[in-house]
Computed example of a mutant assay.
Amino acid sequence: MRPLEGIRVVDLTHAVSGPTCTLMLAQLGADVVKIEPPERGDDFRDYTEHGGLAKMSIPFAAINAGKRSVALDLKSDKGRAALDALVMGGDVLVENFRPGVLARLGFPNDRLRALNPRLVIAAISGFGQSGPLRDWGAYDHIAQAMSGMAMMEARSGEPRKIGIPVIDSFSGYLAVIGILAALRTRDATGIGGEVDIAMLDAALKLMATNLAVESFTGIAPAGTGNRGYRLVATAEYYPTAQGWIALGANHQHQVEALWRVLGRDDLIDDRRFATHPARVEHYDVLRAIIVELLSSEDAAELEGRLTQAGIPAAMLRDVGQAARHPHIVDRGLIVRADVPGADRDIAVVGPGFAVDAPSESLRVPTIGQHTAEVLAELSLEAPSA
């Protein structure tokens, strides 16, 4: 049995954060019914990296595989009646509109609760369902800017955002945690709950240790760039003659092992580098030495020597090289999904943790592909085209 088998999720999400949440729920076995506007569908279907497929961008496919798509006009009586029926038979409703949008469509939380007291309602938004900024819109880079994350990564005074939708994705994962907790409470009490997830909150959650440092010192910490968290040159990214290598020698025994691997045992007793405080103090000198030592190395070969010596290290890889690494293949993290209209399938990342349950074949839904099927289960007729 899959962990969420028997749980039905009414999915009113779009873009990245909401679909990331409902994808995880689907991967755990829930029946996710994705509600989309007829013809237009989720706006993310038209994302720029579309691979030439109408209404089927590859990023959309990556976070919506395994769901059932139902096309409903929620401004019509038939569409609202269908959503009513889905809510009454559902366990979880997830939405990521701005606060108040779902209520204006005729589905405020008190009405949803009246339809189904056991329903868990999860709302993902930029700034949450309460507070002075609740009505502001947000995208991932807006949340990075607002939270201090982009300024932490500033170089020469210029802020930099992280190059993936990290807050969108993390907001979705936080929503999953909240939903699972609410389901646990519902199982104990019989009453559903509400989960309020804000992208700004998620960003600050990611920066919890930095926030604590600022609160204690009064100084906003800067990002570490390519340096490790302990700010020593022995834990950083370096170019080699062939590729780049990430070193992770943070502790004394790791640093001493690093010098032995690189043939510089003499540095073990060098007072400038003999302790962690000394290595931080003499960072620039130490980094110059390491740059010279690695300039004739091969990253792939060095990775093997370092890890064999017990030193955390990795050759820098692109995402394709990482996905095809034998270790990732062995763990079964990547699954495949069929994309309608495409001549090949795509890689979809699994839940991100091992689950002792069978996986299912995945297929990305077209707009409204399952409308008749789902409405028949509710003893309703599909709206006429």
Rank of each mutant, 00 (worst) to 15 (best):
A220V: 09
L231W: 07
D201H: 10
T234Q: 05
L247E: 07
A233T: 09
T234W: 08
A202D: 05
L204K: 08
A246H: 02
D196Q: 07
A246N: 11
Y229M: 15
I197D: 02
G178A: 12
A188R: 15
A220R: 07
A235Y: 08
G223H: 02
K205S: 15
T189G: 11
F216L: 14
F216S: 10
Y238P: 06
G225M: 00
Q242F: 04
I197A: 07
M199C: 03
T217S: 15
G223A: 03
L183C: 13
A188I: 13
A212S: 11
A208P: 05
Y237E: 13
L247P: 00
A188F: 09
L206W: 12
Y238Q: 06
A208R: 10
I179L: 12
A220H: 00
T234V: 08
S215Y: 00
L211M: 13
D201G: 05
G190V: 06
Y238S: 02
G223R: 00
A188Q: 15
G228D: 10
G223E: 03
M199K: 04
G243P: 03
M199Y: 09
L206P: 04
Q242D: 15
W244D: 09
G228Y: 04
Y229R: 12
E194G: 08
A203I: 09
D187K: 11
W244S: 02
G192T: 11
R186V: 11
A241T: 08
E214Q: 03
A241K: 14
R227Q: 07
A181K: 13
G178E: 04
A235F: 08
T209D: 05
N226W: 00
T189I: 13
A233K: 06
L206C: 08
V195P: 02
A241G: 14
V213F: 07
T240W: 01
A233V: 09
G243M: 03
R230F: 14
T224K: 01
L200Q: 08
R186D: 12
M199Q: 07
G192E: 04
T209C: 05
G192N: 06
F216P: 00
G192F: 05
T224S: 06
M199N: 06
I197Y: 05
